[in-house]
Each structure stands twice: as structure tokens, then as C-alpha cells.
Write a protein that binds this DNA or RNA. Structure first.
Length: 231
DNA sequence: GACCAGGCACATC
DNA sequence: GATGTGCATGGT
């Protein structure tokens, strides 16, 4: 099966299995951005607690996070882990937002995709995945987010190599799929949904729903029913 | 107790 | 440039 066909078929199968995921889980673009930073290498449930703390204190806004002291911010986001690091990262983003866009997300997202992405990547603590999550889910730009699940699943399906870089993986998805915000939104969310359930870092064979159909590869990393071994 | 979670920056070789 | 390590909480 061609890689391009696999990418389409996986999407179709996941959508039929799980339906729309209604991502990103957040009420406003600003909340999406804060969530994107807080969820770095962190379980989403912990992020929700941190965001709830910010909401309770009425600080979930550019102005709120600009005024709050680093230590107070770190305390509030403590449940999301790496709280000192992430407090700094939120502060760096806020500094950038006020310096470059007058504190206005509208202004930030009125730039073209390349420019907005380049500027986000200049912010210390915002790497490619966080930048792309912000662009897609807060800014509604057509860009495909690559995360650990995406890499792991599609390596095990034989679509991505072991050594693939973020940019290369992104190119493969974006060359194959239509540049459609709604589809990119849904596809990434579905990948996370599938990954959480079936695709652990260490092989642990449970009956992953994509085996059989895709050359016998098994995203759980265990041995598929057909004789071909999993990656 | 081990493993894992929707990464990133930095030191070291 | 590639490889390793620190950052940290909370759920299973």
C-alpha cells in the first residue's frame, strides 16, 4: 500500500471508530496556547488542574499572566509538572506577545503562516510541536502537528523511518493530505486518542485496531496476528 | 515501584 | 551533529 493511501485510510478508519474529537479542549485561543505549553511531556489531566487554578484566580489572560509573579505562577501550575520551567516558558511567550504583537492574539494570527511560525519558534520554550499546536488549534492555520504518538504509530506502520525528524514527518503528512484545517485538527486529535489507548513506547501487545489491515503491522509494538513481526 | 504523559533547552563529547 | 540529561507532578 502506498504511504499516501495508508495516511488516508488510517484517518478514515479512526474517524469511523472514534468520531469527531472536538479539539482543542479549551474555551479560548489563549487557553489553547497556555494548554499547549503546559502539556509538554505531561498528561492532559494534570494540565486541566493547572488551568483551573489560573481560571479560579482570574489570571488566564495575557494581562493576567503578564502581571503575575513567576513564583506565584509556578505555584498555580504546579500540578502540570516542570512548574518552574513552564512558568518561565509562559512568561517568555507573554513577553513575546506584548513585544511583537501589542499583547494581541489577533495581531499575532494575522501574520502569514511562515512568519507566525518563525516568530513562535523564537520564543524560548516553544519548539516545533508546541508552535504547530498553537498555530493549528489557536490560530486556525493549516499545519499538521507531529507528536510522539504520531511518530511512534507511523513508524510501527512502516510509514516513517526510525530516524525521521520532525520536519520530515510533517512534510510527509502535508504532502499527502489536503491542507485543510478541520482535517488536520481532527487527524492529530484522533492519533492522540488512538495512541493513548494502544501505542506505548515499549512494545506491549494488545489488540490494536490497525493490525490486519495494514500489512500486519501492529502499532502496539507487539506481534501482529499475521506472521510479520512488528516494529 | 515502574512506567508513562499531546517537549524543550542545554551540556558534553 | 548526535547523544544524554534535567525538568516534576499525578495516574495506572
Amino acid at each position: 500500500m502506498k504511504k499516501r493511501d495508508i495516511l488516508f485510510k488510517v484517518y478514515e478508519k479512526l474517524y469511523n471508530m472514534y468520531g469527531p474529537q472536538h479539539w482543542w479542549p479549551g474555551d479560548t485561543p489563549f487557553e489553547v496556547i497556555v494548554g499547549a505549553i503546559l502539556t509538554q511531556n505531561t498528561n492532559w489531566g494534570n494540565v486541566e488542574k493547572a488551568i483551573a487554578n489560573l481560571k479560579t484566580e482570574g489570571l488566564l489572560s495575557p494581562e493576567g499572566l503578564r502581571e503575575i509573579h513567576h513564583n506565584h505562577l509556578a505555584m498555580l501550575i504546579r500540578p502540570s509538572g516542570y512548574f518552574n520551567i513552564k512558568a518561565g516558558r509562559l512568561k517568555h511567550f507573554i513577553d513575546h506577545l506584548f513585544k511583537r504583537c501589542d499583547g494581541s492574539l489577533k495581531k499575532m494570527f494575522s501574520k502569514d503562516l511562515k512568519e507566525a511560525r518563525r516568530e513562535l519558534l523564537e520564543v524560548k520554550g516553544i519548539g516545533p510541536e508546541t508552535a504547530d499546536s498553537i498555530l493549528l488549534y489557536a490560530g486556525q492555520y493549516p499545519i499538521f502537528v507531529i507528536d510522539a504518538y504520531t511518530v511512534r504509530i507511523f513508524q510501527r506502520l512502516g510509514v516513517l523511518t526510525e530516524e525521521v525528524t520532525y520536519h520530515e514527518a510533517q512534510e510527509i503528512f502535508m504532502d499527502a493530505l489536503p491542507h485543510d484545517v478541520a482535517m488536520f485538527n481532527e487527524y492529530h486529535a484522533l492519533i492522540v486518542r488512538l495512541g493513548k489507548e494502544f501505542c506505548r513506547p515499549l512494545p506491549k501487545c494488545n489488540a490494536c485496531p490497525l493490525r490486519e489491515e495494514f500489512c500486519g503491522y501492529c502499532i502496539s509494538g507487539g506481534v501482529a496476528k499475521s506472521s510479520r513481526s512488528c516494529r
